[in-house]
Design a protein around this nucleic acid. Structure first.
Length: 309
RNA sequence: CGCGGGGUAGAGCAGUUGGUAGCUCGUCGGGCUCAUAACCCGGAGGUCGUGUGGUUCAAGUCCCACCCCCGCAA
């Protein structure tokens, strides 16, 4: 099967590699243009580009798919199928439906929930205990196409978005592999999306500051859901600190104000709005490396009673 | 040349106006204890990121160059 693969970030890499490993004929990869990133604005290629080049697959990085150029390229590649995984661009109908088998998308949620850019993080932020990966036949809407196959996975209590990302990326590769072979065999039954839908928009820094007046569970979910990027933050005597990991456990003896540190025994236990504690176990001060809370406590005098905000 | 913080014992940090390098944790040994992540005593462990660099009687501490790590912003 001649396949054009479209994807950009790390999440899409296992899918691409799986297609190659399955012996599919990946005739071209579309990915976002290299962008200036990080300190010094170094021009950085997207992960999918790097992976594609390592396997000798031609890479295309158009800034738009709507000027006719991209369509010409795609026609010349004569694909039987287009596979889209976290590409970051909306495909026009003339491209979407050009291949014989049209276009298939792998999405990191159980549709119709968490359509959009950041389903992995939002599923944790919203306190879900289960999520998954869905393959669908693409239509012109955002993640609204008819569903093909899906696989589910549990979200463990202390799992971070980064960990869930890796699990779902692998699961996505499996779903993709099965979808492609079922497509060839003609055994798929597309199912329209019904039921309650929701939208998982891109994450912004506005979501990062922690609000300890919320419940411990909510604070915990915020820390997990934003870890390792863009990372929940709090202030300690004016300095911003990132929180990468936390766990729940215990309640405050007295009615301390939300954000009060009630113990520094191996981790930083903070009172939340509902009186329960969230234990920050891994953090990173500005300009420092990421470290365990216990390491942080060894070198910093953080008194019980200190206020985090 | 986008802005900024930092590189000192395995880890996290101090090191004041330049004058034989410290703290906490860990580690090793010993002691106490029914027991312990507790407590007591003792020890090991650093050419202070790199430089046959500069200033100085003397540099972790000032100056210069380079390497590396990180936060912001994109």
């Amino acid at each position: 099967m001649r396949i054009i693969f479209m994807g950009t970030p790390d999440f899409a890499v296992p899918c691409l590699l799986r297609l190659l490993a399955d012996g599919e004929q990946v005739v071209g990869v579309f990915t976002q243009p290299d962008k200036p990133k990080g300190r010094g604005y170094t021009l950085t290629p997207p992960p999918v580009k790097t992976a594609a080049l390592e396997h000798g697959v031609p890479v295309f990085q158009p800034t738009t798919l709507r000027d006719g150029e991209a369509e010409k390229i795609i026609r010349s590649l004569a694909p039987d199928l287009i596979v889209v995984v976290a590409y970051g661009k909306i495909l026009p109908a003339e491209i979407l439906f050009f291949p014989k088998y049209h276009s298939v998308n792998i999405h990191a949620s159980l549709l119709p929930k968490y359509r959009g850019a950041a389903p992995i993080q939002w599923s944790i932020l919203c306190g879900e205990t289960e999520t998954g990966v869905t393959s669908m036949l693409m239509d012109e809407g955002i993640d609204t196409g008819d569903m093909l196959l899906h696989k589910t996975t549990k979200i463990e209590e202390n799992m971070t978005a980064g960990e869930l990302h890796d699990v779902l990326a692998e699961l996505g590769a499996q779903v993709l592999s099965e979808t492609v072979s079922a497509l060839k065999n003609g055994t798929l039954c597309p199912v329209p999306q019904t039921g309650e839908s929701s939208y998982a928009p891109m994450l912004t820094k506005a979501l990062c500051p922690l609000d300890f007046s919320k419940s411990a569970q909510e604070v915990h979910d915020q820390i997990r859901g934003l870890s390792p990027y863009p990372t929940a933050t709090f202030l300690l005597s004016g300095k911003r600190i990132k929180a990468f990991r936390s766990k729940l456990g215990g309640t405050a003896d007295k009615a301390f104000p939300a954000g009060t540190v009630v113990s520094c025994n191996g981790d930083i236990a903070v009172v939340c709005g509902d009186g329960n504690l969230v234990h920050i176990t891994e953090l990173q001060p500005e300009g420092k490396k990421r470290m365990s809370a216990s390491a942080f406590l060894v070198g910093h005098n953080l008194p019980v009673g200190a206020l985090l905000e």
